[in-house]
Computed example of a mutant assay.
Amino acid sequence: MTGEREASESAYAALTDETRVRILLTLADRYDEAWSSGGPTFSELREQVGVEDTSRFSYHLSELQDGFIQKVDGRYRPRIAALEIVAAIRAGSYTTQNGDKQYEIQEQETEYECPHCDRNLVAAYQEHHLYIGCPDHGAAVAYPTPPRATENRPLDAVIDATLRNHACDVRLLRNGVCPHCWGAAGLSLPRDSVPETYLHQDVPYATAACDTCWLSYPIPIAQTILGHHAVEALYATHGLRPRDAQIGPHSLTEVSSVRTDEAVSAAARVEVGLADGSVEFDLDENCRIRRYGASDTEQIQ
């Protein structure tokens, strides 16, 4: 870990100068040119960044090489690390501080009722998180969401974008990939307890976790099948939106039955029922889908 920490500190130390950050932003903005012309030359890049002192620019460029940029045939290209840094900056994750009122969205009532009472859930965006919960029963979810997601979007559109992103995350986790650091990650069951603020404390939970980064949170077993094409097809057939699988009266948590007893030939069996249609999923202990199909029938693939 010491070597990894030192490497990380060295890499981020290279980004402490404004000129170096401008170099990365410029290369990223012209990333498409790298595929046709190979990227800018030293002189072209210096002019684009706006630095007159050649020696000073050469020094900053050398500090970024190997880790963040590469030189090929006299032209400069951003590496993946540079593109990731620029994406985080543009998303507002670095440049916008928690508590920045410009990006806050005050609490608003949603169309969805709390599963424990007849009050509508409320949502708000604060401190880089989308919060959705009940005024009486606490926060149901708190999704990490960068400030850029709120730009030119009403709160309802932020909810939609965030939940779509979360469904993609779950699909990656189900396949063993962390959606944030690309490390080994996954879903596992059972999980015995969840925070008291979670609205669905009375349903069986699994755990989403990464072996490398910070990612770790409880997730209802029913929602570990998010993003699967059979689920999306079932919801579309009934005129429901993808977000309806995560929140509201038609969420997977509300319309599914989950069995984890010895009577089923799987670590967990999830049956999703909507009106006249249903799909059944057999999951292993890592929530990987081993069989799915119409209830009480053979697998449909």
Rank of each mutant, 00 (worst) to 15 (best):
F68N: 11
Q106C: 10
G99A: 12
H166I: 11
A11N: 11
V194L: 10
R288P: 04
T260C: 00
F68P: 06
V49L: 03
G92A: 03
E280H: 01
V258F: 09
Q102V: 14
D261V: 00
P204N: 10
T26G: 08
W35R: 13
H116Y: 07
V203I: 13
R164D: 13
Q48V: 05
A266C: 08
H137T: 04
P78F: 07
V86C: 01
E262P: 01
R171N: 11
P147F: 00
F57R: 07
L64I: 09
Q70C: 10
A233R: 15
L172A: 13
H238M: 06
G186I: 06
A82D: 02
V258R: 02
V255M: 07
V279H: 09
I89G: 08
R46K: 15
P249L: 11
Y205K: 03
E33V: 05
G277F: 03
A208D: 04
Q126I: 09
Q97H: 08
R174H: 07
Y131V: 05
L64T: 06
G239V: 08
T297S: 14
S251M: 12
S216V: 12
H116W: 05
Y31C: 10
C134D: 00
V72M: 08
V51T: 05
R290S: 12
C168S: 13
P154W: 00
W182E: 14
V231M: 03
D53V: 06
L172P: 04
L45R: 05
H250P: 00
Y103W: 11
S36N: 10
L274C: 06
A263R: 15
R77C: 13
T253Y: 07
S8H: 12
A81I: 01
L130D: 03
R191S: 14
D118L: 05
L240H: 13
R46M: 09
T54G: 05
Y125L: 02
C168K: 14
A294C: 05
L83I: 13
V177W: 09
R148C: 04
H180Q: 12
H180P: 00
D261W: 00
A263L: 10
L252G: 08
R119W: 07
E151V: 15
R22I: 02
S188Q: 13
H250D: 11
P218I: 14
A140C: 00
V158L: 03
A233G: 06
L173T: 09
Q97L: 15
Y31I: 15
A209P: 03
E9I: 11
G99L: 13
R75D: 08
T19M: 08
Y217L: 15
E127Y: 09
V158I: 10
Y235G: 10
R269N: 00
A222W: 01
H129E: 10
V86T: 09
H238D: 12
P146H: 03
I132P: 03
G38H: 08
T19R: 01
A14P: 00
H250W: 05
E127P: 00
I132K: 12
F68R: 01
A82C: 09
